[in-house]
């Protein structure tokens, strides 16, 4: 895929990008520091019975040095990525099938719509009873969460492909088997990527909750353990790690999305 041409408008773009992003970043930093100061102030003044930033930072270093943090991150990420990749890998073809063939749509859509109404976490008790308490039920629940959000987005993407683009391809001599890879797939990529992002978000939310219920490692499990010992700094470290990892994954996908859909006309 070719990048946007560097002809007209490049200096203007660069200028406005600097003009927009620098104060934006500076403001972000100000907000971050203010939040930190606020947290420090209320805990130092003993207004709330919570650990302060210093205490949490020390615990984070401890957990990082003894390897426990890395192990927890690794277990949680492994579950999320396994479930998510399986879910997305199944959802994308199924979504295309539903969008392209009316019969497939009529057969599958009622199930998708129905299961979408059940929060993935509500499936955990059933999954534990039927699959035991090791990895399988957790991965299954994450798989379900990411599958459902991806499948709907892909299917929406395919049915909203502009008819005139399909017609343009047909009058140039393209048959269905060419139109599908050359027109339908590229035209639905923006939708699919939005679905993938939502899917990863819900997978991440689900894994932590699943680990709270039954696990031997992972960020959710660690918090659950810490809760038993009233270990608030560890709970904070886990929560912050969950937030940061979620944010990083989302930003990576967003960057991929930007690259893959740079051809889209965007309202400025």
């Amino acid at each position: 895929m070719s990048a946007a041409p560097s002809t007209a408008g490049a200096p203007g773009t660069r200028f406005s990008r600097l003009g927009l992003h620098l104060p934006g970043l500076a403001l972000n930093a100000v907000a971050f520091l203010a939040g930190l100061a606020f947290w420090w102030a209320i805990t130092a003044a003993k207004l709330v019975v919570l650990p302060g930033p210093h205490e949490v930072f020390v615990r984070a270093i401890e957990l990082a040095v003894n390897g426990q943090l890395a192990l927890d991150i690794f277990s949680s990420l492994k579950r999320v990525l396994t479930g998510f990749v399986l879910g997305a890998a199944l959802a994308i073809p199924v979504g295309f099938l539903m969008g392209w063939y009316k019969i497939a749509r009529a057969l599958i859509e009622p199930y998708v719509q129905f299961f979408r109404m059940i929060p993935p976490l509500a499936v955990i008790p059933l999954a534990i009873v039927t699959m035991g308490i090791d990895e399988a039920p957790k991965i299954f629940v994450i798989f379900l969460a990411s599958f459902l959000s991806c499948v709907v987005a892909t299917y929406q993407g395919v049915i909203s492909v502009d008819r005139t683009l399909i017609n343009a391809a047909r009058v140039l001599g393209a048959r269905d088997r060419v139109i599908f890879p050359r027109v339908v797939i590229p035209a639905s990529i923006p939708f699919i990527l939005v679905g993938v992002r939502i899917g990863l978000g819900s997978a991440w939310a689900t894994v932590v909750a699943a680990e709270l219920i039954a696990a031997q490692s992972g960020l959710g499990f660690r918090m659950q353990q810490a809760q038993l010992y009233y270990d608030l700094p560890t709970i904070f470290v886990s929560l912050i790690t969950i937030g940061i990892l979620g944010l990083v994954m989302d930003r990576l996908l967003q960057a991929a999305e930007r690259r893959l859909t740079s051809w889209q006309e965007r309202a400025q």
């Binding site: 895929m1 070719s2 502009d162 005139t164 683009l165 017609n167 343009a168 391809a169 047909r170 009058v171 140039l172 001599g173 393209a174 050359r182 027109v183 590229p186 035209a187 990529i189 051809w263 889209q264 006309e265």
Partner: peptide, 28 residues
């Protein structure tokens, strides 16, 4: 059905937005 012996230019341009000008022209 449609056929390449009948070239069509649509009222809405119907260019493939993910392809460059050249790739659009070379599509057929």
């Amino acid at each position: 059905g449609p056929g390449p012996e009948r070239g069509v230019i649509f009222q809405q341009y119907a260019l493939f937005p993910w392809l460059s000008v050249r790739q659009n022209v070379e599509f057929g």
